[in-house]
Nucleic acid binder design. Structure first.
Lengths: 192, 192, 192, 192
DNA sequence: TATGAATGAGCGTTCATTCAT
DNA sequence: TATGAATGAACGCTCATTCAT
């Protein structure tokens, strides 16, 4: 009884997400409208807000899931042994996070959550990124004078820096990857 | 004649900025409404948009000016000779940039400008930050294995990272300053 | 078997009414939400509508019952022999009916029922009020030039008038009782 | 300058009211939707709410204006000299007020205003009704044992009573006019 | 330059009611 | 009977921005 109810609920939720993804695939994230989502899902507006606190909550879920998928792939691949390999490995995620100005803004905005109960997927993926980096660093031939967590946080900081530059007219000469490589080399192989 | 017109224009502009600052002082940045600004300045709404392209332009100006003031102070002070001094020196600026979630969001959003002609004050202050850091690094006893610009950009990346953590419920154990110190030491004194 | 089912049904109904009354006691009639009622009664929303045609039906029942209780008291008391006594006697009922703007609105709305089968408790209590007044008038020293039913209806009309004035900012100088007394004297003792 | 602006404002307001009236004429009061009003007026939704606090405010204005028009007509006509004439004179207004259940409900709900500043047209027309009745009674051959204001209020009370009965399944045998006549005779010609 | 009424697209909300299980 | 997810049709609102005067 309870199980069947949950199933129905999950199906509805899935339909809403699928409809949203469809819109995003067609017109991009910034073009998503709640009205259009429920229209495509064949549901009432009230149903949307019964499943998601607001539009942002859906956005957090969809973007967060996509980031998670990238992290899954990173976890499934062998740990990079050079900064070049690392930059290569990070590029799919960086490209996704910068695929739209709107997406990058949402990510930055949601990456910090004011309260524990508000922590959404995107915020969690930021934690997971650090974990993935830590796993990479465990056996990699990089600097070992500082804690693995610190090294991982540094990678993250430079990823953000490289992506931010992408949206800046002052720095658009260099690609994300070039900048990332420069940063990672200086961060992980000092003196090298 | 021309001078008097310019003077009047500047006065109007100044009145609008003063009114905005008043609201910010009373209720914070996020609470600022154009309606309220023109009301206090004793003008019509249209006048606002004759002086500022949009609300964001005013926000960019006010926040950018405040950041500039902090940079002026940093430039006027002697260059830090230790990472501890550097972290200390950076804290007033970091505190301002994180005084409100809204302010930090605006700063991140404006730090990259889509086109050269759109570059606003905040974006410029980001460039200026790098310059200030470069000046600091010129004679300081920090790593010299990488270009001074790269070193400066790293400081900036870690400042952002430390401030971001501030808004994240997952990391609020450590203060901005503690994180910053940790990062700067690892970045500027590798192996040290 | 049948008895136990009926008992269960009645218990469910009673629980719903009790929960509703609890909410009313705490927050007033206007604040009552079906959601909150079933939550307190520990039931599902659907159960509510299995017992009451709609929310209004519950409201009609609760308010109607309260009015009935007042009418019981009036019937149990001796008939007033003066308009002063009559106004005194009517005040508890008037006070209840005007305890909340929402309650008075519901009463006026329900006092007329669109169809015989829709006649609810409140509409019935209006009929009962007339009957009570008729009983009062049977032996009382008031005008006798018109039918007793007409006299009774007049009392009712003036009760409504006096209560309506209560909610009007234009007339809040006089109390319900003062107005009622004025009206009743003019209605029941013309020329007196 | 100021005048021309006011003119434009008044025109917009008039267009909104005209559009609303059009809908009412076609489909009735209960069918009026804000969306439809602005659509017909060729305006934005925001404009509606810039002119009317909410939908109810528009309803109050339209219904109140209509009542006012009836009162204008009553004031322009000679004062009734018999209760029969009075009932005849009141019927157009009564018919309007009971043209729709929704309209009568709105009238009752708005006839009392919680605060002076909230007093709308409908509430004001109730005061005006009393004044019109007072003017009628000044020279008419009706009872004079009570104050003219009191006599006027009684007429009003009985109008409401007669109209309320109209919506009540228990009393729909008699017409509003018959009831009104009965009431007025008993009220204005006691002993007669 | 100044005015301020008008715009407008979409979000969030409400909450009684229905219906498949 | 009981369940509770889903419905749905407006409403109210926001508020930066535009534009005719």
């Amino acid at each position: 009884m309870i199980r069947s109810v949950q199933k129905r609920t999950l199906e509805t939720r899935a339909k809403l997400i699928a409809a949203a993804q469809e819109i995003i695939d067609e017109s991009g994230y910034a073009a998503l409208r709640v009205e259009e989502v429920v229209l495509r899902a064949g549901m009432a507006k009230g149903t949307f807000f019964a499943h998601f606190k607001d539009k942002d909550a859906l956005m957090d879920l969809i973007i967060g899931s996509e980031i998670d998928r990238h992290l899954d792939a990173l976890e499934a691949s062998p740990a990079p042994q050079t900064v070049e390999q690392m930059a290569d490995a990070l590029m799919p995620l960086c490209n996704y996070m910068t695929c739209e100005r709107y997406v990058f803004d949402v990510i930055l905005r949601f990456s910090g959550a004011a309260a524990i109960e508000e922590i959404g997927l995107i915020a969690r993926t930021f934690g997971r990124q650090i974990e993935v980096f830590e796993a990479w660093l465990a056996d990699a031939p990089f600097r070992r004078d500082i804690a693995v967590e610190l090294r991982a946080e540094g990678i993250h900081a430079f990823m953000i820096q490289a992506m931010s530059a992408q949206f800046c007219a002052l720095h658009n000469a260099e690609s994300i990857q070039d900048r990332l490589l420069l940063y990672l080399r200086a961060w992980l192989l000092p003196g090298g």
